[in-house]
Amino acid sequence: MLALAGRGLPGAERVRLVVYDFDGVMTDNRVITDQAGNESVRANRSDGLGVNLIRDLGIEQVILSTEVNPVVKARADKIGLEAVHGIRDKGSALLNLAEKHHISLSEVLFIGNDVNDADAMGYAGFKVAPADAHPAILALADYVTTAPGGHGVVRELADVLTAARGRAT
Protein backbone atom coordinates (compact mmCIF):
# COMPACT_ATOMS: atom_id res chain seq x y z
CA MET A 1 0.00 0.00 0.00
CA LEU A 2 2.88 2.39 0.65
CA ALA A 3 4.05 2.18 -2.95
CA LEU A 4 0.52 2.86 -4.17
CA ALA A 5 0.08 5.81 -1.84
CA GLY A 6 3.22 7.31 -3.35
CA ARG A 7 2.15 6.87 -6.96
CA GLY A 8 -1.61 6.66 -6.62
CA LEU A 9 -4.34 8.53 -8.40
CA PRO A 10 -5.04 11.90 -6.74
CA GLY A 11 -8.73 12.36 -5.95
CA ALA A 12 -9.56 8.70 -6.64
CA GLU A 13 -11.67 8.57 -3.49
CA ARG A 14 -14.32 10.41 -5.57
CA VAL A 15 -14.62 7.63 -8.20
CA ARG A 16 -18.18 6.25 -8.32
CA LEU A 17 -18.11 4.45 -11.69
CA VAL A 18 -15.31 2.49 -13.37
CA VAL A 19 -15.72 1.85 -17.09
CA TYR A 20 -13.40 -0.74 -18.63
CA ASP A 21 -12.43 -1.30 -22.20
CA PHE A 22 -12.26 -5.08 -22.65
CA ASP A 23 -9.57 -6.08 -25.16
CA GLY A 24 -6.17 -4.85 -24.06
CA VAL A 25 -7.35 -4.14 -20.51
CA MET A 26 -9.04 -7.32 -19.28
CA THR A 27 -7.23 -9.34 -21.95
CA ASP A 28 -3.73 -9.23 -23.41
CA ASN A 29 -5.27 -7.94 -26.66
CA ARG A 30 -4.66 -11.22 -28.45
CA VAL A 31 -7.27 -13.55 -29.89
CA ILE A 32 -7.11 -17.25 -30.60
CA THR A 33 -9.10 -18.36 -33.64
CA ASP A 34 -9.73 -22.05 -34.24
CA GLN A 35 -10.26 -23.71 -37.62
CA ALA A 36 -14.04 -23.19 -37.34
CA GLY A 37 -13.55 -19.45 -36.80
CA ASN A 38 -14.41 -19.48 -33.09
CA GLU A 39 -12.53 -16.85 -31.13
CA SER A 40 -11.16 -17.11 -27.59
CA VAL A 41 -9.34 -14.65 -25.35
CA ARG A 42 -7.36 -15.01 -22.15
CA ALA A 43 -8.37 -13.20 -18.98
CA ASN A 44 -6.53 -12.95 -15.68
CA ARG A 45 -8.40 -14.48 -12.73
CA SER A 46 -6.93 -11.90 -10.37
CA ASP A 47 -8.92 -9.28 -12.28
CA GLY A 48 -12.09 -11.06 -11.15
CA LEU A 49 -10.92 -10.58 -7.57
CA GLY A 50 -10.17 -6.95 -8.40
CA VAL A 51 -13.72 -6.46 -9.67
CA ASN A 52 -15.06 -7.83 -6.39
CA LEU A 53 -12.76 -5.60 -4.33
CA ILE A 54 -13.92 -2.55 -6.27
CA ARG A 55 -17.54 -3.65 -5.86
CA ASP A 56 -16.95 -3.89 -2.09
CA LEU A 57 -15.91 -0.21 -2.17
CA GLY A 58 -19.40 0.62 -3.46
CA ILE A 59 -18.13 1.61 -6.91
CA GLU A 60 -20.23 0.69 -9.95
CA GLN A 61 -18.45 -0.98 -12.89
CA VAL A 62 -19.25 -1.50 -16.58
CA ILE A 63 -17.41 -3.01 -19.55
CA LEU A 64 -17.59 -0.85 -22.69
CA SER A 65 -16.28 -2.49 -25.86
CA THR A 66 -16.49 -2.15 -29.62
CA GLU A 67 -16.02 -5.92 -29.86
CA VAL A 68 -19.10 -7.78 -31.11
CA ASN A 69 -17.91 -11.26 -30.12
CA PRO A 70 -20.09 -12.75 -27.33
CA VAL A 71 -16.93 -13.48 -25.31
CA VAL A 72 -17.23 -9.95 -23.86
CA LYS A 73 -20.69 -10.62 -22.42
CA ALA A 74 -19.68 -14.11 -21.29
CA ARG A 75 -16.76 -12.72 -19.27
CA ALA A 76 -18.89 -9.86 -17.93
CA ASP A 77 -21.55 -12.33 -16.79
CA LYS A 78 -18.90 -14.49 -15.14
CA ILE A 79 -17.58 -11.59 -13.05
CA GLY A 80 -20.98 -9.97 -12.51
CA LEU A 81 -20.60 -6.82 -14.61
CA GLU A 82 -22.83 -5.00 -17.04
CA ALA A 83 -21.40 -5.10 -20.57
CA VAL A 84 -22.12 -2.67 -23.36
CA HIS A 85 -20.44 -4.11 -26.43
CA GLY A 86 -20.60 -3.90 -30.18
CA ILE A 87 -20.74 -0.11 -30.02
CA ARG A 88 -18.90 2.23 -32.39
CA ASP A 89 -18.70 5.48 -30.42
CA LYS A 90 -17.24 4.93 -26.96
CA GLY A 91 -17.40 8.64 -26.12
CA SER A 92 -21.17 8.82 -26.59
CA ALA A 93 -21.61 5.48 -24.87
CA LEU A 94 -19.67 6.75 -21.83
CA LEU A 95 -21.86 9.86 -21.66
CA ASN A 96 -24.95 7.63 -21.77
CA LEU A 97 -23.59 5.35 -19.03
CA ALA A 98 -22.88 8.28 -16.71
CA GLU A 99 -26.38 9.61 -17.27
CA LYS A 100 -27.97 6.17 -16.84
CA HIS A 101 -26.13 5.66 -13.54
CA HIS A 102 -26.78 9.27 -12.41
CA ILE A 103 -23.06 9.87 -11.97
CA SER A 104 -21.13 13.00 -12.89
CA LEU A 105 -18.39 12.55 -15.50
CA SER A 106 -15.97 13.94 -12.91
CA GLU A 107 -16.66 10.78 -10.86
CA VAL A 108 -16.09 8.36 -13.75
CA LEU A 109 -12.83 6.45 -14.22
CA PHE A 110 -12.23 5.09 -17.71
CA ILE A 111 -9.49 2.61 -18.44
CA GLY A 112 -8.53 1.96 -22.04
CA ASN A 113 -5.55 0.96 -24.13
CA ASP A 114 -5.91 2.13 -27.73
CA VAL A 115 -6.82 5.13 -29.86
CA ASN A 116 -10.50 4.13 -30.08
CA ASP A 117 -10.65 4.81 -26.33
CA ALA A 118 -9.46 8.42 -26.59
CA ASP A 119 -12.91 10.06 -26.78
CA ALA A 120 -14.21 8.17 -23.75
CA MET A 121 -11.03 8.95 -21.83
CA GLY A 122 -11.41 12.60 -22.70
CA TYR A 123 -14.84 12.72 -21.04
CA ALA A 124 -13.88 10.78 -17.90
CA GLY A 125 -12.74 12.54 -14.76
CA PHE A 126 -10.08 9.88 -14.22
CA LYS A 127 -8.08 8.28 -17.03
CA VAL A 128 -6.13 5.04 -16.60
CA ALA A 129 -4.11 3.00 -19.09
CA PRO A 130 -2.34 -0.36 -18.92
CA ALA A 131 1.46 -0.27 -19.15
CA ASP A 132 1.42 -1.49 -22.76
CA ALA A 133 -1.22 0.93 -24.04
CA HIS A 134 -0.78 2.90 -27.26
CA PRO A 135 1.50 5.94 -26.73
CA ALA A 136 -1.36 8.37 -27.44
CA ILE A 137 -3.41 6.78 -24.65
CA LEU A 138 -0.46 6.71 -22.27
CA ALA A 139 -0.13 10.46 -22.86
CA LEU A 140 -3.78 11.00 -21.82
CA ALA A 141 -3.60 8.83 -18.71
CA ASP A 142 -3.61 10.17 -15.16
CA TYR A 143 -2.36 6.78 -14.00
CA VAL A 144 -0.52 4.04 -15.89
CA THR A 145 -0.59 0.60 -14.33
CA THR A 146 2.59 -1.37 -13.91
CA ALA A 147 0.69 -4.36 -15.32
CA PRO A 148 0.22 -4.74 -19.08
CA GLY A 149 -3.25 -5.53 -20.43
CA GLY A 150 -4.59 -8.92 -19.40
CA HIS A 151 -2.03 -9.32 -16.61
CA GLY A 152 -3.80 -7.95 -13.54
CA VAL A 153 -4.68 -4.40 -14.60
CA VAL A 154 -8.04 -4.49 -12.79
CA ARG A 155 -6.47 -6.06 -9.70
CA GLU A 156 -3.90 -3.27 -9.58
CA LEU A 157 -6.64 -0.68 -10.03
CA ALA A 158 -8.50 -2.24 -7.08
CA ASP A 159 -5.45 -1.63 -4.90
CA VAL A 160 -5.18 1.97 -6.10
CA LEU A 161 -8.85 2.66 -5.36
CA THR A 162 -8.65 0.88 -2.00
CA ALA A 163 -5.57 2.91 -1.02
CA ALA A 164 -7.34 6.13 -2.05
CA ARG A 165 -10.05 5.31 0.46
CA GLY A 166 -7.53 4.61 3.20
CA ARG A 167 -8.25 0.89 3.35
CA ALA A 168 -6.02 -2.14 3.04
CA THR A 169 -6.55 -5.06 0.66
Rank of each mutant, 00 (worst) to 15 (best):
G91W: 03
E67W: 01
R14E: 11
A43Q: 09
R167S: 11
V62Y: 00
T33W: 07
L81I: 05
L97I: 04
D77L: 08
N69I: 01
L57T: 01
V144R: 14
P148E: 02
V128M: 11
V72D: 05
R7C: 10
K73V: 06
V62I: 07
N69Q: 08
A5D: 08
A118M: 15
M121C: 07
G91D: 05
Y123F: 14
T146H: 10
M26R: 08
G37N: 03
T169H: 13
F126A: 03
G122V: 11
A83F: 03
V15D: 08
S46R: 13
L161I: 11
L49I: 07
A136W: 13
V144L: 08
T146E: 14
K73W: 01
T146A: 13
L161D: 03
G8V: 08
Y123V: 13
N52H: 09
P70F: 00
V160R: 07
E107F: 03
G149L: 01
N29L: 07
A12V: 06
K100C: 00
P10G: 07
R55K: 10
A98E: 02
Q61D: 06
D28K: 01
D28N: 12
D117P: 15
A163I: 07
T66M: 07
H102R: 14
A163V: 15
I32A: 13
V71I: 12
D21S: 07
L81H: 05
S46H: 08
R16G: 10
I32Y: 11
R42L: 10
A83V: 03
E39T: 14
I63W: 06
E99L: 04
S104T: 11
L157W: 06
G8N: 06
I111A: 03
A43P: 01
N29S: 14
R16D: 08
A147W: 11
D34T: 14
M26W: 09
R75E: 02
A168F: 15
R45C: 04
T145Y: 09
G166K: 13
K100Y: 01
G58P: 02
D34P: 04
G152E: 01
N113G: 12
L9F: 10
T66G: 14
S46D: 09
P70D: 05
I103K: 03
T27C: 12
D23W: 06
V62C: 01
A163K: 07
P10M: 07
